[in-house]
Design a protein around this nucleic acid. Structure first.
Lengths: 166, 166
DNA sequence: TCAATTAAGTATAATCATTTTCAAATTATA
DNA sequence: TATAATTTGAAAATGATTATACTTAATTGA
């Protein structure tokens, strides 16, 4: 954690920015919630717990800054808010997302699924790929399992009724 | 065009919605600007030319409705606005986009690039894919060609200078 | 060290896209 | 035709984000 903060500090310094206490508190919240996809408001509320004097505008500015430096990625899943997602260290590509249309959960895929696809795009469309956004919408494994369970129970119920029909 | 409108009319009726004059005017604008990625405001201004009495709220409501019926897809390229893109007839999957980080242009890829990738996701993550969003950010072929042209000119210039250096 | 410049922060107001409200108009239905 | 349901338009409300004005902290050069 501390190492990671230090490296981010260096990245900021390299561009003549400082890691102020407010910025550090914001980065810490992002690190502590790495699995989540927090909105600016979410980040603000969490940072406030440690640094109650911080302003919402500062959080927005910090997230914007971290975006520019490619330390976080700003993503949008179609609800009205932008979400901010820490880029994994050493990750050459932005990770992908699985959004469940039933429960709303968002899971991440770290694997590089697009290597071949990007080559095709560069060759066929003469487009120099710098970044990508890939999101799948569908039903997550948790909801699928729930459905299977329900189906199983329904079948059992039908089976119980069978004798009554006679 | 008329055939397409009629089929959309049927899709609406199938769900107990009517193709009101306002809705028809909106759909026509989308059909006439199929290559573009219009925002709600853009659509509103274009519809107004034909049906000046229409309200912005109606356009938003119509686009929302068409989204639900999967006639249009709502997309977001990270600027503050949602854009609405007509789904090609018979297209089983949503098309992909190439966003140029230099000139801001948005090109479309109709080809299915994700067939294999989706199979991997379903198998490996146990996630039932229903839809996807794939956007590449990079440099479009027009900007790339411009760069090549500039490089060519710069080299020529250097060549001209050569004698001066001696 | 100290004044002067610059960067960054806070709080609040302003902006902009989108949604909601509600009365009026239109359309379907009995 | 009367009644109910749907749809609309205008305006107000909302909610996320950005800009503004002012303050505070940090940095620099004499």
């Amino acid at each position: 954690m501390e190492g990671r903060i230090n490296r981010i500090k260096k990245q900021l310094h390299a561009q003549k920015y400082k890691l102020t206490p407010q910025r550090e508190a914001t980065v810490r919240v992002l690190l502590e919630n790495e699995q989540d996809h927090l909105s600016a408001e979410d980040v603000y509320l969490l940072v406030k717990e440690k640094a109650p004097e911080i302003g919402l505008a500062t959080v927005y500015r910090t997230l914007e800054l971290l975006s520019e430096l490619k330390i976080v990625d700003k993503i949008n899943f179609g609800d009205g808010v932008s979400r901010y997602d820490l880029r994994r260290e050493g990750a050459s590509h932005f990770h992908h997302h699985l959004v469940c249309i039933e429960c709303g959960s968002v899971d991440e895929i770290q694997e590089d699924l697009l290597g071949e696809v990007e080559k095709v795009v560069e060759r066929k469309w003469h487009f120099k790929v710098k970044d990508h956004r890939l999101t799948f919408h569908g039903i997550c494994h948790r909801c699928l399992e729930k459905h299977e369970e329900e189906n199983r129970l329904n079948k059992e119920k039908e089976f119980e009724k069978e004798p009554e029909k006679v």
